[in-house]
């Protein structure tokens, strides 16, 4: 179990902003820190990793104090046994993919070949990071973070630089890895679709505070009792006199939904939405 109760003074565009976080994350949760840019999500993740020092408070992981301002404890980053995946991948440019993993693994670690195979990286093992595509680099970053068998995996917007197709593939891999390695995972994102795809718990950050915390359903669509739903982004709103056609991008597909003209008033292009099917008899077609 991870218990975080910390304060940190941040500088935002509007001046100083206190970040106060009080949160408990259970073992094996796939937890999301969600919110707008500058709300304090990444700083909280970095404080848990030890990359940023809180001004006050405490961080306790599985009964061990990692940080306590009262007891003057601040466990060094290298002793926290976490896996951290950075937004820019942070692969070491002078090392091949295999050397990146060997460096991370340290002496006597026999998991390199296993990880290379599990993460489908065998064909790239002698390539340099600059030769790989974004998705491949992210997969290496993930493999490198996992090689020391951490119990906690921290992901700072790991998929934000990827296209929808690759993002969807890696989201599935993340879920698989989370279960396979029995991890407690925390991901920072501002992509609602990603939350529904990956996580079972969300902390909603706003202006340095957690304003809501709970299950994705409870936070985003507590009014819906649908059986089936997908999250996406509105790419077009075409209004006529009586109805409006809303085009929603879900992954790489576009879905058109007809809604009441009054309902369409609250919808705008670029908005993240959930498309829910409440009908009793949806059509199901086999694809092969």
């Amino acid at each position: 179990m991870i218990y975080i109760n910390v304060c940190k003074k941040l500088l935002s565009a509007d001046g100083p902003m206190p970040l106060t976080v009080n949160i408990t994350i259970n073992r094996h949760d796939f937890f999301t820190f969600f919110g707008a840019s500058g709300a304090g999500k990444t700083t909280t993740l970095r404080m848990l990793a030890g990359l940023t020092t809180p001004d006050s408070g405490e961080i306790i992981v599985d009964g061990t104090t990692w940080f306590s301002s009262d007891k003057k404890i601040n466990l060094p980053v290298r002793k926290r046994n976490i896996g951290f995946v950075f937004q820019d991948y942070a692969l070491f440019p002078s090392m091949s993919i295999r050397r990146n993993l060997e460096y991370a693994a340290g002496k006597g670690n026999s998991r390199i070949d296993l990880i290379l195979d599990t993460m489908k990286l065998r064909v790239f093992e002698h390539a340099m990071p600059s030769e790989l595509s974004g998705g491949q680099r992210q997969r290496v970053a993930l493999a490198r973070a996992l090689i020391r068998s951490p119990k906690i995996l921290l992901l700072d917007e790991p998929l934000s630089a990827l296209d929808n197709d690759m993002r969807s593939v890696l989201q599935n891999e993340l879920i698989q890895i989370h279960h396979e390695f029995s991890l407690t995972s925390i991901i920072v994102t501002h992509d609602i679709a990603e939350i529904f795809h990956l996580s079972n718990h969300i902390a909603f950050f706003e202006q340095g505070h957690i304003i809501k915390c709970g299950l994705p359903d409870a936070l985003f669509n507590d009014k819906l009792s649908s059986k089936f739903r997908v999250a996406g982004k509105i790419v077009a709103v075409d209004k006529s006199e009586l109805a409006a056609v809303i085009t929603v991008q879900v992954g790489i597909n576009l879905t058109k939904v007809v809604v009441d003209i009054n309902e369409a008033e609250t919808l705008r292009k670029g908005q993240d939405v959930i498309v829910a099917v409440k009908a009793f008899a949806p059509s199901i077609l086999p694809i092969n």
Partner: peptide, 15 residues
């Protein structure tokens, strides 16, 4: 160099 290179190495247990 991006600061994340140094930070990534530290998170991998290196001094």
């Amino acid at each position: 160099l991006p600061p994340s290179l140094r930070e990534a190495s530290l998170t991998l247990g290196k001094n």
